[in-house]
């Protein structure tokens, strides 16, 4: 696989949120406006790229049995760095995103990429993969944030567009609007890709780091959909 395709596959073809359906919690929660979406996307991308690099460097050192806790510690370290940087330089964005900055630690995309890519590939490939996946997540958040901000408050990047002409539908800024717009986006992707993009048509555990456990759960209890 050449370097360019490693970088670009995360953006459209294997978009972590819209195609692989990972990281839905921060995706729904922080896409209330285009700015918030971009901020969350870029911070996740930074953590993803850095943790992919470090995990790739340590991939031969980390014992297989305790790899998940090791990955979590690396990721949590970078999340703390990002948290400090945001508190210092972007206090407004930090208070808007609030709880979801520390929760980057448990974002399935990051642990999933560590498990599926960084632990098996070289440093440069892992960095490119992290940046590509991060860009895909940022793009998805930006699109969703733009739609919700436009419908919910009639503005784009806080500049009024239709806010004075039509009463904005503030429900789109709230929780139900998040689920609704996400559902419509995936339906649109299904329609335009004629069902090719999302083959499984269900919430997949395949990209999740805990897929092995999940399969066990399914066999015993019907736990997961896959």
């Amino acid at each position: 696989m050449n370097k360019l395709s490693i970088l670009t596959k995360g953006i459209i073809k294997e978009n972590p949120t819209l195609v692989l359906l990972l990281g839905t919690c921060p995706f729904l929660a922080t896409s209330t406006s285009a700015i918030n979406g971009l901020g969350m996307g870029v911070s996740t991308m930074a953590v993803l790229a850095c943790s992919n690099i470090v995990i790739s460097i340590l991939r031969k050192t980390i014992p297989d049995n305790v790899r998940i806790p090791c990955y979590i510690v690396v990721i949590a370290g970078f999340v703390t760095v990002v948290q400090f940087l945001m508190q210092a330089y972007l206090p407004d964005l930090n208070s808007a995103l609030g709880l979801y900055i520390p929760l980057i630690v448990v974002n399935c995309i990051i642990l999933g990429r560590a498990e599926m890519f960084a632990s098996k590939n070289g440093i440069i490939d892992s960095a490119l993969d992290g940046i590509g996946m991060g860009l895909g997540f940022t793009l998805a958040l930006f699109v969703m944030g733009t739609i919700r901000e436009f419908l919910g408050s009639g503005t784009l990047f806080n500049i009024p567009i239709t806010a004075d002409l039509i009463t904005p539908m503030s429900i789109f800024m709230l929780a139900p609007g998040g689920f609704f717009v996400f559902g419509m986006l995936i339906a649109a992707i299904n329609y335009f890709s004629k069902g090719k993009a999302i083959k499984k048509k269900d919430f997949g555990c395949s990209g999740c780091a805990l897929a092995g456990t999940c399969n066990k759960a399914e066999k015993e209890k019907g736990g997961c959909d896959e």
Binding site: L21, I171, L174, A175, P176, G177, G178, F179, F180, F182, G183, M184, I186, A187, A188, N190, Y191, G195, I198, K200, K201, D202, F203
Partner: peptide, 22 residues
């Protein structure tokens, strides 16, 4: 309907449930 099968319909149902909790 086709494009709504699977994930989208589940999300729309979650949207309605969330609306009722409001």
């Amino acid at each position: 309907p086709g494009p709504f099968q699977g994930v989208p319909s589940v999300l729309l149902a979650a949207s309605i449930l969330s609306l009722s909790f409001m």
